[in-house]
Design a protein around this nucleic acid. Structure first.
Length: 562
DNA sequence: ACGAATTGCGCC
DNA sequence: AGGGCGCAATTCGT
């Protein structure tokens, strides 16, 4: 049973019931703004199988969470539209062939949605006309139905997982990541010195800069200006061509070590210093906005606070509540395992049997050292052609022809300007007009040598993108299924307790999750995390012989994990 | 003067 | 000549 929710111009909500047999749709009910959360809560309790259908979880769910209401399942029409619109599995559907409409326009979300905000913010009509969730839902069902039986079941899973991800994202923002501002401040003082007045360099930063200046001995300069810094380095006889740390590392000069230290500390100060603390930590919680589907590959993005780039440097400030713990779980070598599963490479699946896939590659004699295995695999998935990983590629290809052939095929398809797809059916975008015109031009008789070179470079660039897309995108699907399965198990464990009073997800980082839970539940939660990982593998790959082991750690602060 | 693009670095 | 991001500060372009 699906319940399609739609906001009416007067702020009320209409709900239409749709039976799964596609049968007659009952008359829509209309709820007042005040009754809506109660209606959702009651329905969740009395009809546990139902699925809410709405245009945008990020607009609908935060007010419900604020009212203490949890939703078990939904269809996020906006996210699913994006998938079905470009999937090669549904390319013949009218949803895919229609001109761009209101469901293709991005929605501007407020940073902090509260109970009243839903009705204020959606009052703006999206570009391209009014959104009709009922019609869109039917169009999406028709699009899925237009796919082959196999694609249909995969797309259905993808749509469910994507929508579950949207629920999880809202819940994680609502719950927040526990953050000890005191400990963060201590950390900053220890590394940078006391908090300075605005615009003034912290004491330690200034001291390190003085060291750099003395060692270079070319006078004062502003280290924040790449141009000035580069000129200073060159004046001091350092033949740098950029001011990137990894390039500077190779030079032997007394100024280099303090300069690298300066860059590290300056980064901490500007990115996660006192200003960040003031702006992002309130009431002991960090509440970034997660953006499910924010990356073309299906990975999440984040908006505000740099949530997906929390440096290891400050993770000791992520502290569980008294009597509570974090269960930190990480999927070991997720992307190479994904590659072995989607390519059906039996030899690589054998190497993936244990907890460490790279060790497995060495043990089975495919490659000599773990370090080589890792750099070679990453290079193969990213499309490296030179350097160490480029040199190791032939050996890798000999050992794992299926796996390497799979990413090579994805690269070739991209070079031809074709779409590629993940296991569940998310397809890559087509290259832009400029790209196609360049390839067109290069294939003409009158094309110059320079045009041909540029066209080949661009083709290879796009091929690297599509090569990585199939792996990164399928890994993102695995992670969504992992989280969605875990979320269901945690809800069961909670037995009706409020979200933040029982074990709940507080952080997600591509192949890593953090659950905040009472200490007494931690070991049970760790088990659920592992069970969920196994289920994710089964859901996506059936009984394929590839393991997806996860490492789990029960810790009081985030830095104590691995 | 102000928004866009670039540089550099954090995460996976 | 290595995939995907977000953010701060500088620099560019109009």
């Amino acid at each position: 049973m699906h319940l399609v929710a739609q906001r009416l111009p007067d702020g009320r909500v209409s709900v239409a019931r749709i039976h799964d047999d596609g049968g007659a749709q009952a008359r829509a009910e209309t709820l007042s703004r005040e009754d809506w959360p109660l209606f959702v809560a009651r329905t969740e309790r009395d009809e546990p199988g139902i699925r809410w259908v709405w245009d945008d979880t990020a607009a609908w769910y935060p007010p419900l969470l604020a009212a203490g209401v949890r939703v078990a399942r939904c269809v996020d029409l906006r996210l699913c539209h994006a998938i079905l619109r470009s999937s090669t599995d549904t390319s013949e559907s009218s949803l895919a062939t229609a001109p761009a409409g209101p469901w293709d326009a991005p929605i501007i979300q407020p940073r902090e949605a509260d109970a009243g905000a839903l009705f204020d913010l959606v009052a703006d009509e999206p570009a391209g006309g009014e959104r009709d969730p009922l019609a869109e839902f039917e169009a999406q069902r028709a699009a899925v139905a237009s796919a082959t039986a196999d694609a249909r079941s995969r797309l259905s899973l993808l749509i469910a997982a994507e929508s579950a991800g949207a629920l999880i994202a809202s819940e994680m923002t609502f719950a927040g990541l526990p953050w000890d501002a005191r400990r963060h401040d201590d950390l900053l003082v220890e590394m940078l010195g006391p908090r300075p007045a605005p615009g003034v360099r912290p004491r330690v930063l200034q001291e390190v800069l003085d060291e750099v200046t003395a060692a270079l001995d070319v006078g004062a300069f502003s280290p924040e200006s790449p141009g000035e810094l580069l000129r200073a380095l060159q004046s001091a006889g350092i033949p740098a061509t950029s001011t990137r740390s990894w390039e500077l590392k190779q030079f032997e000069h007394p100024a280099i070590a303090p300069l690298l230290r300066y860059k590290k500390l300056a980064r901490l100060h500007t990115a996660n210093g006192w200003n960040w603390l003031d702006q992002w930590i309130h009431d002991g919680r960090f509440r970034p906005t997660y953006v499910p589907g924010g990356v073309v590959t299906g990975r999440w993005a984040s908006d505000g606070g740099g949530a997906l780039q929390l440096p290891h440097q400050i993770r000791s400030a992520v502290v569980a509540d008294p009597g509570w713990r974090f269960v930190v779980a990480d999927a070991a070598q997720l992307e190479p395992r994904i590659l072995s599963a989607i390519s059906g490479d039996a030899a690589m699946a054998t190497a993936a049997r244990g907890v460490d896939l790279y060790d497995g590659m060495v043990r089975t004699g495919a490659i000599d050292t773990r370090a080589h295995a890792k750099v070679a695999m990453l290079g193969a998935m990213y499309g490296a052609t030179t350097g160490e990983s480029g040199r190791l590629l032939p050996r890798l290809t000999r050992a794992y022809p299926q796996a390497i052939g799979f990413v090579e095929a994805a690269a070739r398809a991209g070079e031809r300007g074709e779409r590629v797809s993940t296991r569940l059916g998310r397809s890559s975008p087509l290259p832009g007009r400029a790209w196609r015109e360049l390839q067109q031009q290069a294939s003409g008789d009158a094309s110059s040598e320079a045009i041909g070179r540029r066209a080949r470079t661009e083709a290879r660039n796009w091929g690297r993108f599509t090569r990585n897309f199939v792996v990164q995108g399928t890994a993102a699907e695995w992670a969504l299924c992992w989280m969605a399965s875990l979320r269901t198990r945690l809800a069961h464990l909670a037995g009706g307790a409020p979200l933040t009073r029982s074990a709940h997800l507080v952080f997600f980082l591509h192949d890593e999750i953090v659950v905040h839970c009472p200490e007494s539940q931690a070991e049970r939660v760790a088990e659920l995390v592992r069970e969920s990982a196994a289920e994710a593998g089964r859901l996506i790959f059936g009984r394929a012989p590839v393991d997806f082991p996860v490492t789990t750690a029960v810790v009081a602060s985030y830095d104590q994990a691995k």
